[in-house]
Design a protein around this nucleic acid. Structure first.
Lengths: 209, 209
DNA sequence: GTCTATACGTTGATAGAC
DNA sequence: GTCTATCAACGTATAGAC
């Protein structure tokens, strides 16, 4: 890991601490930087994206980035933290709008299908992140893996609630199916691949109930 | 696309042509370069790999690379061609060692499981390539997609031989499952994920027979 | 054909003015 | 806190000696 604010959760805490320390601080800049980074890193990939790309998207001068983040890796880490936050929000909504474990899982799948156009263009945000960072061994790879773990854990809990003893294996299989079809949807630029696999997975979930 | 020798097949043809043109040519250098590129690009990823990395792995001076390839992209293209060649060889062996479509598909799955240690370290060679190049729109992305297409086509033919009308969808699902579990196996550095999914897929193929 | 030297742009990061 | 100017290192690619 590369310094303080090492994990996605700690990032938000340290941000709050800073806000308390100086009341004059504009919270907009840092947040804009992270939001821009999240989007641009997804669109261009981690290794190909420069700080200039992110700074431009956030409408912030390049050199100024270093006031908010000591290194490029720390900015990437914050962007991964934003993914974790987004995932948390999404699963909370799923739990609110669907009652049974099966319905929640099927709603998750439907969400994937609804996102298919973004997947066609850039692949799954978490998946492409893990794919690139998986070739590293500097700590950032573990941070990305953490987000993927959160997703699998959530799915596993739903299968467990359905009374499945093999809930972990089923969760891994469902997320793997999504990651795989995301890759193919992006590779062949064909949203219909995601739609068709969504139908298959929905039937599969029903068959397990 | 970035010039002559635009597709994986044409590469091998142009190589042959060159060999005919000058009998004194050492075929070792170019081939070593492509072999090294194939390995290093898989290990480090496309965007992070420099020509110096590849040249060093091939034990060739950096500047000399440009005698064999006009640009870095053309070397990458040749490496993708090597993947296509390898895939062709592999499927030929599968057809030789297994008789029925089911057995051939199960042998394919077993091959994936046997490769799990490499997947733990660097992910699926074709998959990580497609993931990175999928963010481009310069032609190389289509070349990588071509290799993935070869694999799906081969699988589809086996399902068709089994009499399945939905052979294309099944082929996409099987390859997606492999790509997805490859990503997770690499993300969590856990070969057991691949082993377990291999068992699941083998049972699934049997259930379709 | 093979290799060395080097040009030229870009990148992450720093120093310091305001 | 914000921004500009700039550095040092590295990347691709070229020129040209042998």
């Amino acid at each position: 890991m590369s310094g303080a604010g090492g994990d996605p959760v700690a990032y938000h805490v340290s941000k709050m601490t800073d806000s308390v320390k100086s009341a004059t601080r504009k919270p907009g800049k840092r947040e804009r930087l992270v939001t821009a980074a999240t989007r641009v890193l997804h669109e261009q990939g981690v290794e190909k994206t420069t700080l200039a790309d992110i700074a431009q998207a956030a409408e912030i001068p390049v050199g100024n980035v270093y006031y908010y983040f000591k290194t490029k890796d720390q900015l990437i880490e914050a962007a991964i933290g934003a993914h974790a936050q987004h995932l948390h929000t999404m699963t909370a909504i799923l739990e609110q709008h669907a009652a049974t474990p099966q319905d929640r899982l099927k709603a998750l799948v439907q969400g994937w299908v609804d996102q298919r156009d973004l997947t066609v263009s850039y692949g799954c945000p978490t998946g492409t992140l893990c794919s690139e960072l998986g070739k590293r061994a500097d700590g950032l790879d573990r941070v990305a893996a953490g987000v993927m773990g959160l997703l699998i854990d959530w799915v596993e809990r739903r299968f467990a609630e359905m009374g499945r003893a093999d809930s972990r294996e089923l969760a891994v299989a469902l997320v793997a199916a999504y990651q795989g079809i995301s890759l193919l949807t992006n590779t062949f630029r064909d949203p219909e691949l995601m739609t068709a696999e969504g139908r298959r997975l929905t039937r599969w979930i029903d068959s397990l109930a």
